[in-house]
Simulated assay, not measured.
Amino acid sequence: MTEPTFTPRVFSGIKPSGGLTLGNYLGAIKRFVGMQGEMETIYCVVDLHAITVWQDPAELANATREVAAGYLAAGLDPTQSILFNQSQVAGHAELGWVFNCVARVGWMNRMTQFKDKAGTNAEKVSLGLYAYPSLMAADILLYHATHVPVGEDQKQHVELTRDIAAKFNHDFGTAFFPITEPVIDGPATRVMNLRDGTRKMSKSGESDMERINMTDDADTIAKKFKKAKTDPAALPDTLDGLAGRPEARNLVDIYAALDDSTPEAVIAAYQGAGWGRFKPALADLAVAKLAPISQEMSRLMNDPAEIDRILAQGAARARQIAEPILKQTYDIVGFLRS
């Protein structure tokens, strides 16, 4: 069987729930923008994933626009990349069902994020929350995406996507779906909590001081970094000296990511410095990088019709790619269409 050649194509998405944080920006959006021009890029607001837990409809619509505004304010060019919200392309749900019938229950039982989110209440959560990794595979493979930029915590879902593609190809004697590669790079692919460096920065954390919201103004950004938890010791002269110091390592990683540098370079520049020197420098850098994005997001959110227009145009472009791939999938499976 001749192996097909797939167009190099990136797909990734962000769920519209709870507002964008610095973690979304450094772990995802900044990297998405940086990949424009390297290959074909398709980016999505994954609103179908949002409803795996109940969402207020008006808040969901607003959150969807906010994520789109975050993409655009950070530099995503809707003429260069495709930007849309997932529910406007029906093929995501349709291919998701096909993949529900390809994926195995045992694979889903190994998904650590479901266990984390369901906790001890697994019997009462939605079926969608259990099965959403299969929909995530459909999101990716509906476009024959070859690369997916993800944080370390999402790598397992790309591995599941590879398993589903391989099983579909094997079951139907084809090489139709690519074996997608995860792209994990950069110093802050997993941004941690500003009050507890052992926990990921979250939209749903108890205190607003735990996170940098992408809608925070300059004064709020500076205040949060200056009050971020640290330890008494100064910065070491090597990166190894940050072992066992999660809050310190997190702030160094954030500085490196904002500065397009490396943690090693940050340590070289600030070795021996106390937090009274480093945190104000980090705050200034963060304000310089993030405040313009916050201001542009605010401007865009005041013009929801423009955001909706961009998402609609992106959805039309996405469907042009997705519909032939879905049609071929149906042909391979044997679905009869009159």
Rank of each mutant, 00 (worst) to 15 (best):
1 M>E: 09
3 E>D: 10
10 V>L: 15
12 S>K: 07
21 T>V: 10
22 L>M: 13
23 G>Q: 00
28 A>K: 08
29 I>Q: 04
33 V>A: 13
34 G>P: 02
35 M>K: 03
38 E>S: 15
41 T>G: 09
42 I>N: 08
53 V>F: 01
59 E>R: 15
64 T>S: 04
67 V>N: 03
70 G>M: 05
71 Y>R: 03
74 A>R: 01
82 I>Q: 04
90 A>Q: 15
96 G>Q: 07
99 F>S: 02
104 R>D: 00
104 R>S: 01
108 M>F: 11
108 M>W: 04
111 M>A: 14
120 T>V: 03
124 K>W: 09
124 K>T: 15
126 S>T: 15
127 L>F: 12
128 G>S: 07
138 A>E: 04
142 L>S: 15
147 H>W: 03
150 V>S: 06
150 V>Y: 02
155 K>M: 07
156 Q>G: 09
163 D>W: 01
164 I>L: 10
167 K>C: 05
170 H>W: 14
172 F>I: 09
174 T>G: 09
179 I>P: 08
180 T>G: 09
181 E>N: 13
182 P>M: 08
193 N>E: 08
193 N>L: 05
194 L>H: 14
199 R>N: 10
201 M>I: 09
208 D>G: 15
208 D>H: 06
213 N>Y: 12
217 D>R: 13
218 A>K: 04
220 T>F: 01
221 I>N: 06
226 K>H: 01
228 A>D: 10
234 A>F: 00
236 P>Q: 11
238 T>Y: 08
248 A>C: 08
251 L>S: 11
251 L>K: 06
258 L>N: 13
262 T>M: 06
265 A>T: 07
267 I>V: 03
267 I>D: 02
268 A>F: 01
269 A>N: 01
279 K>P: 04
281 A>I: 00
282 L>C: 04
283 A>W: 09
289 K>W: 00
294 S>H: 13
296 E>S: 00
296 E>C: 00
302 N>Q: 13
304 P>M: 07
314 G>C: 06
316 A>Q: 14
322 A>M: 02
326 L>M: 09
